[in-house]
């Protein structure tokens, strides 16, 4: 065995676990979905090739437009919420405050991420109760009467956004907080000596230095919100009617309630392509504002 072959062997051996996981849990399901989208398959009886029937059904499906529109609304509400407010929270905790207080805030902001989604969603669901919920009780003290959090197709988005913010803001906060820690203090000191104000330091040091992390949070949040499932599933059940049903919830319904795996795969592919396009666009634009030069 030549040295080159040995190096290759070692390289492949190191790669093997990750490659195996990729093949089994990512490549294989993606290929299987693609194949299944041309079949009729109910998981109990063998699959049957039906050509393009699932794609024809996709374009004739009355509910798809609404669930895609709902998902877009979730993306437009939740992405800025997580990306901007996560940064503001991280900046607030990064300030020169007592170390103990910093630990306290970090724990408080990240704790909901660790809590069991189903349990806390149930609690939030009771809080959102129109008649007996604590939120409406407090609002009634200010003369605001009975907000239909779960019954109105408009309010339902706010209910999901409040829960999502409380539950998952800790993730964005933590990424930003780590990113802020990595910005050398000397840069701020030098800028301060040069007479730069707080806003100038933020615009010319913090934002450019944090841009890779901002980009990471933006991409992961956008992908996450496009695939949103837990929040509406646990809080609203997709209701009223289909008002808060996301594409992923709809795929779950087709696959695991109707057992139409072929059609569910077709819808999954459409969502996959949508996310791929959005992510590609983000990477394209990122060249204009993300700086990887950390010197």
């Amino acid at each position: 065995m030549t040295k080159k072959s040995k190096d290759l062997l070692v390289g492949y051996l190191f790669l093997a676990p990750a490659l195996l996981l990729f093949l089994v849990f990512i490549a294989e399901p993606v290929i299987a979905s693609l194949i299944l989208s041309f079949t009729k398959y109910n998981v109990i009886t063998p699959s049957k090739f039906i050509g393009l029937d699932n794609f024809k059904a996709f374009f004739e499906d009355d509910r798809l437009g609404l669930v895609y529109w709902n998902t877009l609304k979730f993306v437009l509400i939740l992405t800025p919420l997580h990306v901007v407010l996560g940064l503001l929270l991280a900046l607030a905790v990064q300030r020169k405050i007592a170390k103990g207080l910093k630990y306290f805030y970090r724990t408080v902001f990240y704790f909901p991420v660790l809590a069991t989604s189903a349990a806390v969603a149930t609690a939030w669901s009771f809080m959102f109760n129109k008649e007996f919920g604590i939120l409406n009780y407090f609002l009634s003290l200010f003369g605001i009467e009975g907000i239909p959090w779960m019954q109105s197709p408009n309010w339902v988005y706010l209910a999901v956004a409040i829960y999502s913010f409380w539950k998952f803001i800790g993730n964005a906060f933590l990424y930003y907080f780590i990113g802020l820690q990595n910005i050398p203090e000397t840069l701020y000191e030098a800028a301060e000596i040069d007479g730069a104000g707080k806003l100038q330091r933020f615009m010319n040091i913090t934002l450019p230095m944090l841009s890779p992390m901002l980009f990471f949070v933006l991409v992961t949040t956008l992908i996450g919100t496009t695939q949103i499932f837990d929040e509406p599933y646990l809080i609203t059940g997709g209701g009223p009617g289909d008002a808060s049903r996301s594409v992923n919830m709809y795929i779950y319904e087709i696959a695991f309630q109707k057992h139409q795996m072929g059609y569910a795969s077709t819808v999954s592919i459409s969502l996959f392509l949508a996310i791929l396009a959005i992510t590609a666009l983000q990477f394209g634009f990122s060249k204009k504002w993300v700086s990887y030069d950390q010197e």
């Binding site: 239909p148 779960m150 019954q151 109105s152 197709p153 059940g237 997709g238 209701g239 009223p240 009617g241 289909d242 008002a243 319904e253 309630q257 109707k258």
Partner: peptide, 20 residues
């Protein structure tokens, strides 16, 4: 049954939420 129940519940939800 699972399909019928799901459809019935969805539309009943709309009625009870005063959306239809």
């Amino acid at each position: 049954y699972a399909d019928v129940e799901s459809i019935f519940n969805r539309y009943m939800g709309l009625i009870l939420a005063n959306q239809s």
